[in-house]
Amino acid sequence: MSKPPLVEVEDLTVRFKGARDVYAVNGVSFTLDEGEVLTILGESGSGKSVTLKTLLRLLPENRTDIGGKVRVGGEDVLAMQGRKLADHRGGTVSMIFQDPMLALDPVYTIGEQIAEAVIRHEKVSSKAAMARALEMLERVRIPSAARRLKAYPHEMSGGMRQRAMIALALACKPKLLLADEPTTALDATVQIQILLLLRELQQEFGMSVIFVTHDIGVAVEVSDRIAVMYAGAFVETGTTREIIREAKHPYTHGLLAANLVGAKPGQRLDAIPGAPPALETRPTSCAFAPRCKHAMDICRAKLPPIRRWHDRRWVSCVLAAEEHASA
């Protein structure tokens, strides 16, 4: 019998309430097995970070309506309260961010911050916690780790801070790591160091990872599977190879062209016109249709059908469905 997936998300919806409502996530479903790496690929405002934050319940409760089901390790994340939620955050699931300067506390040393998390979740002595902090700094390959244990975040370089944040996130051996564009602000030579480090640590710890990025190159380097997100919904999912080599959705094609995959120097790119929708209402037709060069009347009339090869390879586009019907 196969193991149940670590993460099960079913028809997740997130709406931000305010002077103007924003329908940020509109029916996202996916599963993630233990030890798997999924990348959610999308542009700003596509809802990729919001989806990620829902898994940790980091969204402001009084201004957010969340619908659907989110289960991690069989536990209902949306129903968690108090102690249980606190154990979930940083224990079962933890997160790394784009800006480690904001994620780390400026008035505590790196060692104190990691030790604090370990004590909170594992109830060990402060000495043992500090020993774990040192071990973690070594595992993320921070040189002269013992000295860095006593360093404050501002005393470290950007790449080093990013490593320290990863050490903090992994200190309690989470089953799931959420990574929200952790390399976007880094220099090229440092970005690749962090990507390879995450890949190594993922294998070492055997954890699952959900990675959010807008950069296809980054997605290719780290992920087993990719989900392409647009206007609060997944439009296509598949293995990394399937998405790069056999993309079916016109938006995925556009993103690949925009990342200059196979571009001829100096010649016009096959760019997607226009801009993403504002999402003040929940889309009732294909959200990409206004920018799609293949759009037909039916695309503007109702939500696109889903063509499903199996539960991890599907496309939500009328073109792919038609191709299927005629084949």
């Binding site: 290719v220 293995t239 995959v261």
Partner: peptide, 14 residues
């Protein structure tokens, strides 16, 4: 250091 665009040729060495 440029991320690879080919899933079969990922970067192996920093």
């Amino acid at each position: 250091a440029m991320p690879s665009m080919d899933p079969d040729q990922r970067t192996e060495k920093v």
